[in-house]
Design a protein around this nucleic acid. Structure first.
Length: 432
DNA sequence: TCTGGGGTCCTAGGACCC
DNA sequence: TCTGGGGTCCTAGGACCC
């Protein structure tokens, strides 16, 4: 048995928390570069603003609707997320963070009325943090996700589902006929694991609701589609197929990439960008105490600039041995970049991905009689500490440039909410 | 003028091995 | 004319998720 706890309109809710003037207004949160909408308040959703919609379109089309835009502040969201997860984890016997605003609780062996338990936890999060949440409970993770969808929709769109399923929904506790009715009222595109592509294929086959999918023959699904979809079908039928993640929460890949504020054409600018991305990625890697075996570098033009010649390439460079050293990782990334770089394109985005991640507690060295062993882990630790204390980028590699590049490819974030949880000077003051 | 930044898993095909 | 059967590893790309 699983419970999914989900923060509603999470980024918008976090942003409002420190700016009450935004309450009740249509609010959109923009991704980096203020490029596109990555979160919306209910009011913004009601206006018809879409996820992923470019911000310039929102400004153009909803100018008279009182829409307010704020730039994402992931520092703030991350702080609130970890507090929310701490409370949510009290719900069951185990916990697994799934994304910044969602997590699964293992509910096996939890006594009593699960719906009431969920309501209590939901209220605690609301009271302690001021964040609205929904909870879905089901026999598999896919059913818990579906229950969460029901809990959210029953609240937001009255009439879509029975009202008593709003906020906290336990599908495992429903009589079979009610359970089928809920599935029949659920669009198949709202099932976790079924996206646009598969959705279209299933519709073409005359399947339209979650109930239709739950009634499919799993073996046939595997033959005609894939094991992935087969698992989804089985999960809907109540058979748990997706393993609960290991407690070791280490990532298997670490990426740092950015779209540029304006087109970049010169290799030198890309070198500086890639150096910075490599540094950021290496920092994340050290945080999870890992080592990377390979470094992937990619550069690409913008598919939206249709008049431009397009180019997109990536390259994977093996590291001599697994490492978390910013210098070695950046060196590989730059080497790779020089291989794939072509003159004469308007580059819009670049990134560095760390692959083949390994546990840092085991380290392989080599017999090298010519050069003294260089262990720079102390240097890396010191660098991380300084950057933590004085801010990102205080200490970085020289190839990251000295601020010039920052201006050339820097991101725009013109409507950034404040760092109310990480900066002394921006702490909110409570007045009686 | 302006279109995010992370992740996961699976599959197909090629290179290579015996 | 007729050219095996079994395996591993890697890469690229697709599909999905938030």
């Amino acid at each position: 048995m699983f419970a999914l706890v989900d923060g509603w309109n999470f980024f918008a809710s976090c942003t409002r928390l420190f700016d009450p003037s935004l309450a009740g207004r249509p609010l959109v949160i923009a991704g980096s570069n203020d490029g596109c909408v990555i979160a919306r308040s209910d009011e913004a959703r009601a206006l018809g603003i879409k996820m992923g919609q470019p911000l310039f379109e929102v400004r153009r089309d909803f100018r008279n609707s009182g829409v307010v835009a704020r730039s994402a502040n992931f520092n703030l969201f991350g702080m609130l997320s970890s507090r929310m997860m701490t409370i949510a984890a009290e719900l069951g016997t185990s916990w697994h963070d799934y994304s910044i605003d969602e997590g699964f609780a293992g509910m096996d062996g939890v006594p009593g009325n699960l719906v009431q338990r969920g309501r209590d936890k939901r209220e605690k999060i609301e009271q302690w943090l001021g964040l609205p949440t929904g909870i879905g409970i089901g026999r598999t993770r896919t059913l818990a996700k579906l229950a969460n969808h029901v809990a959210k929709s029953a609240q937001r769109k009255p009439g879509s589902y029975p009202a008593d399923l709003a906020q906290v929904c336990d599908l495992a506790n429903l009589p079979a006929s009610d359970f089928d009715a809920v599935l029949a009222a659920t669009d198949l595109g709202d099932i976790w694991g079924i996206g646009k592509r598969i959705s279209a294929q299933l519709q073409a086959d005359g399947l339209h609701t979650a109930l239709d999918v739950a009634n499919m023959d799993a073996a046939m699904v595997r033959r005609r589609w894939s094991v992935v979809l087969e698992r989804t079908v089985r999960e809907l039928q109540g058979q748990a197929c997706i393993p609960f993640e290991d407690v070791t929460d280490g990532k298997k890949e670490i990426m740092c990439s950015r779209s540029f504020g304006r087109p970049v054409t010169e290799l030198q600018d890309l070198v500086e960008a890639v150096t910075e991305f490599a540094g950021r990625a290496a920092e994340k890697l050290r945080k999870q105490e890992g080592r990377a075996g390979q470094v992937l570098t990619f550069i690409r033009t913008s598919p939206f600039r249709e008049a431009d010649r397009q180019y997109s390439r990536s390259i994977t460079m093996p590291l001599r041995r697994p490492t978390a050293d910013t210098g070695l990782i950046a060196q590989s990334a730059i080497q790779g970049l020089k291989v794939i770089f072509r003159q004469g394109y308007n580059y819009a985005k670049a990134g560095v991905m760390l692959l083949d991640l390994q546990d840092g507690s085991v380290e392989q060295w080599e017999l090298d009689l010519d050069t003294p062993r260089q262990d720079r882990s102390a240097l890396m630790t010191t660098m991380d500490r300084i950057n933590m204390k004085y801010g990102r980028g205080t200490l970085q590699l020289a190839s990251a440039g000295s601020g010039g590049a920052a201006r050339r490819f820097s991101v725009r974030a013109e409507h950034r909410s404040g760092d109310h949880m990480t900066s002394w000077s921006q702490l909110p003051i409570a007045r009686a």
